Computed example of a mutant assay.
Amino acid sequence: MRLFDKRIISHFDHMLVFLVLPLIFLSHHLINETNEILAQKQLIYFSISGVAFVFFFFLPIRNNIRIIPFLYWIGIILLLAVEFVGVTKLGATRWLPIPFINSTLQPSELIKPIFLLMLGYLIYNNPPPKHGYNIKDFIHLSFYILLPFILIVKEPDLGTAMVLLLVGYGVLFIVGVRWKIWAAIAIVLAISSPFIYTYLIKDYQKKRITDFISDEPSYHVQQSIIAIGSGGLFGKDQEDATQTQLKFLPIATSDFIFAYYVERYGFVGSIGLILLYLLLITHLLYLNYSSKDDYLVRAFASGVGLLIFFNMSINILMVIGFAPVVGLPLPIFSYGGSSFITFIVIFAILQNLLAFRYKDLYNYERKL
């Protein structure tokens, strides 16, 4: 019996690879211009990601779907562990120490693929009725969305927590929830907003909001806007991109890499990059409608599309001064091992769900 059926590869989403690779190449090119040491480290992340992609692509996920809740609760336990034994960096406790190798693990990154799989698992086992989920089902699903949100907010990491919250409820919106429930949520949020701002948002987060709405933006955003404006229509040569080369633009390889990109490639380049992201997001959301009754793929693909959309939107709006600075990287573009590897693992899981969806049918045909 053949161990691998070539028809599996026929269901591999080649368009997804075609849309992601330019982001990876552009990112490495920019980071190499700015910091060759970081560019070398990024190549290591690429290598690790390649191995991780192959590993997760060949995992028998559909044959072991019942293990997903177990993985979800492992992720929750790791988020809880941050509260007690977490490592603090720059005033935030978001990491767990890894014994013997002098390194750390960020559970809020690890939980992302597990969170998407858990949503897919729950929706797969209880598909929405014709008119959408009722209040009982909505509360049940909300529990699994709100639990990681609360734990990540406590780290504190409001940016990541809000993105997961929006992704979770965005998936439910796409899959189907009765409109009366959304109307009730909108009313409750409108009424409770002053309470949330006064008692739940921390002082440093309030300062970011104050900086955002003040007449003069923060230093980081000021330098970012200068870099974007200096790029003009078609951008500058590397040696002329003085905002980045002379270190005026802070965090030019990670949180504010979009500003450096626009300084180098101008307004035209920025539109091209945004269009590339929008094509990727549209393609992922299209999988929701093309997969029909496969709710595992529908929920996971929609979640990936929304995850990229919210990260990209918030990062770019933050860089141009239209949103508070929250430290969210530009997906698959900003420098950073944890975020990059997480997204590659997410893509590998999605490709797995797509490529192996007819595996049982192939095995049945062989038996005949």
Rank of each mutant, 00 (worst) to 15 (best):
G168E: 01
Y204G: 13
R366F: 07
G75N: 00
F322C: 04
L172Q: 01
P113C: 02
P99K: 07
S27L: 06
I314V: 15
N32L: 12
N134C: 01
T210N: 02
I8K: 10
L30K: 05
I24C: 12
F195K: 00
I314N: 10
Q40S: 14
H28L: 14
S10F: 10
N126L: 05
Q245I: 09
S49P: 07
I341K: 05
A52I: 12
I332K: 06
S192H: 03
L26P: 05
D13H: 13
G50Y: 13
L233G: 03
R208Q: 09
V85W: 00
G159F: 12
S218I: 08
T34Q: 10
L200M: 12
L249C: 09
L287D: 07
I274V: 06
I341N: 06
V297C: 09
A161H: 13
S214Q: 02
T210S: 04
L71C: 13
I9V: 15
G337M: 03
N288Y: 14
E109V: 11
E365S: 04
I174M: 10
E365Q: 08
N32K: 12
H131I: 08
Q223T: 01
F343M: 08
A301L: 11
N311M: 12
S49M: 00
K247Q: 14
L151M: 14
L189G: 11
I226W: 03
M318S: 14
I213P: 01
I226Y: 02
H220R: 09
K206S: 11
H11S: 15
I61N: 07
F347E: 12
D13S: 15
L38D: 04
N134P: 05
Q205A: 11
F333I: 03
T342A: 05
L307R: 10
W182E: 01
L273H: 03
P60Q: 03
I274A: 03
K207F: 10
V262P: 03
F84N: 00
V82W: 02
Y335F: 11
F267C: 06
V17G: 13
T244V: 13
P60G: 07
I114W: 00
E239P: 07
I332V: 12
Q351I: 12
F234W: 09
Y197W: 15
